[in-house]
Write a protein that binds this DNA or RNA. Sequence first.
DNA 1: TGACAATTTCGAGGAACGTCGTACTATGGA
DNA 2: TCCATAGTACGACGTTCCTCGAAATTGTCA
Lengths: 107, 107
Amino acid sequence: MAATTHLTPLVHPERDEMTVEAVLRALADPVRLAIVRQLARSEAEVSCGGLEVPVTKSTLTHHLGILRTAGVIAGRQDGTTRFNSLRRNDLDELFPGLLDGVLAARR
Amino acid sequence: MAATTHLTPLVHPERDEMTVEAVLRALADPVRLAIVRQLARSEAEVSCGGLEVPVTKSTLTHHLGILRTAGVIAGRQDGTTRFNSLRRNDLDELFPGLLDGVLAARR
DNA sequence: TGACAATTTCGAGGAACGTCGTACTATGGA
DNA sequence: TCCATAGTACGACGTTCCTCGAAATTGTCA
């Protein structure tokens, strides 16, 4: 009833606020790296349920929050589903080559 | 006199054994990132004592071990001093753009 | 309205990490 | 030979991190 959207307002860092340390920390986890690879491959938005990860949904939420806070991914709310996408442009602008280098790694 | 070098034999991973996850984890720490930046800037080997970091020597040893185990740096022993250098070639070959992207980050 | 589906929040357990001080080894010079 | 120097090994301590389950929130559809 109260209009208090208890959902976090989906806050993302501006490009200026992103740091290479936060991005590296965000990428330095197998689950999150798998998420980034899937987003990079699909080239389109992917809902949380559409991601294949070996963890619970609550853990997935946690990882997506870290990726979003670091500026690696963007989230767009649409009804009850949240669509995620890679912030390729911002990453390439700030750290040219970083994302491609990570994605180039075998397996 | 005994030739038993109790020092760890300075083991480095082969290029084939390096993983992007280990490299990212190694880079995802402010102290280690500072080390990498100094090695990249100096373009020559740097002894442990020549690195400017805000931690104790024992902690520095720990960080250098992580960087070496991940394949980010190489160590060469010469007397009592150990010289460290960036494994640029291997990193660029495996993850083209990664290192440059990290180093391109402002600050 | 009521049930269901998609996701988040909260709290807790356990593992991994960064840090330090102290003790130790090894090399080189006086 | 003795001492200073360069760096490592070993615990130990506190913090951060990953993980989960249970409960709560929001939107959709019948």
